[in-house]
């Protein structure tokens, strides 16, 4: 099931879990150093090996897509923005429900991504690992007994595994604890980032935690460490909620209802404002203050209102004011639907 159309385990606080495995082929230089001829040949070999697995992939030719369609792939977390900036040929193989996406020709030749709603790290890893095993048994992989899977960056060598969990932390955000959180988790080998990735500020109170370490720790140990950190964050957030919201129910209810009010009536809305209001609405869902609405619905709205996805569904480029208008339309309709669901 496509992660952003659903909600998973611990779905009230955790939006999604993501796994990325990096693999490279022997006998070719890493990503950016490939010649166009090497790049094209490499892509064909990987496509061939994936086809041979009998799995059904959509072979997406990125160069044929409009900039809006490309951006929409980034917004749906199916490709990294870096893939679009590679000087060498790149490709994308997409599993039919978008839960598996294989990026070809990024910094590493092969990056297998697996996405799940909620906190679902181990199943997400197993799905990605199954694909990795097929590729490993079909192609000559850059691997050594000593260092494991060899990658372009020494921060990925070993398992080549990057696991991320996207969490909704409104109370910790409001209490200004995210920076302290980020500082301290980096000492444990985990990175904290905002919704839009690497250098972004926290938007919509969404925070992504992922591992930095890939060598000297096995896959399952790493996943269990990350799982424990996430559990701790959940506990912290729940305690922080008592502090930030619990003592003053009417203030929280006011916040949630204001969000519903603005989302339900605005005619123009930026994606920044919308994400912040959706965060308030999600808080309402989590606290049982917003009947008729669900975390899954908010997950899906978050993707629908992003610039690339908006333009993709419009089928043409849209200027910012036009996007703000369409975004407001989508949100008004969703709020109206939620209200009538609550009424019945």
């Amino acid at each position: 099931m496509t992660w952003y159309l659903t909600s998973g385990p611990e779905g009230d606080l955790i939006v999604s879990s993501r796994i990325r495995l990096a693999r490279n082929l022997k006998d070719y230089p890493f990503g950016a150093r490939l010649t166009p001829e090497q790049g094209t040949e490499l892509l064909e070999r990987i496509r061939g090996a994936c086809r041979a697995s009998g799995d059904d992939y959509l072979d997406v030719h990125l160069e044929d897509l409009s900039p809006q369609e490309q951006l929409s792939l980034v917004e749906r977390r199916l490709i990294s923005p870096e893939l679009l900036e590679q000087p060498n040929p790149v490709g994308l193989l997409l599993g039919r429900d978008e839960s598996i996406a294989i990026m070809l020709g990024e910094e590493d030749h092969i990056r297998i991504q697996s996405m799940r709603a909620g906190l679902d790290l181990v199943p997400a890893w197993e799905a990605a690992d199954a694909v990795a095993r097929i590729i490993e048994s079909r192609l000559p992989i850059a691997w050594s007994e000593r260092y494991g899977f060899l990658t372009a960056c020494p921060t990925n060598v070993g398992t080549g595994l990057r696991a991320s969990v996207m969490m909704h932390l409104p109370a910790l955000t409001r209490l200004g604890q995210i920076e302290a959180l980020s500082r301290n988790l980096s000492k444990l080998g985990f990175t904290v980032r905002g919704y839009h990735g690497e250098h972004s500020r926290t938007q919509g109170c969404l925070v992504q935690i992922s591992n930095q370490l890939t060598l000297g720790i096995g896959e399952r140990d790493l996943l269990s460490d990350l799982g424990q950190i996430v559990e701790q964050m959940l506990q912290l957030e729940r305690r922080a909620r008592e502090q930030a919201f619990g003592s003053d129910d009417i203030r929280t209810a006011d916040r949630v209802q204001r969000a519903i009010g603005i989302l339900g009536h605005a005619r123009l809305i930026t994606s920044e404002e919308a994400l912040d209001l959706l965060s308030d609405l999600r808080l309402g869902v989590e606290l049982g203050l917003a009947p008729g609405f669900s975390a899954a619905q908010i997950n899906s709205l978050m993707i629908q209102i992003e610039p690339g996805t908006l333009q993709k569904s419009a089928g043409r480029p849209l200027e910012a004011p036009e996007r703000d208008c369409r975004r407001a339309d989508i949100l008004r309709n969703a709020i109206a639907a939620g209200r009538s669901a609550a009424a019945t």
């Binding site: 095993r133 097929i134 048994s137 050594s144 921060t155 398992t159 595994l161 896959e219």
Partner: peptide, 26 residues
């Protein structure tokens, strides 16, 4: 280098697939 940026300097993950496994490599 790896000692400073990683948990350890030796690989402890699962072995490369396709070597001893049942799938015959091409």
């Amino acid at each position: 280098i790896l000692g400073r940026i990683q948990r350890g300097t030796r690989y402890v993950g699962r072995p490369l697939a396709g070597r001893q496994s049942t799938a015959t490599p091409c």
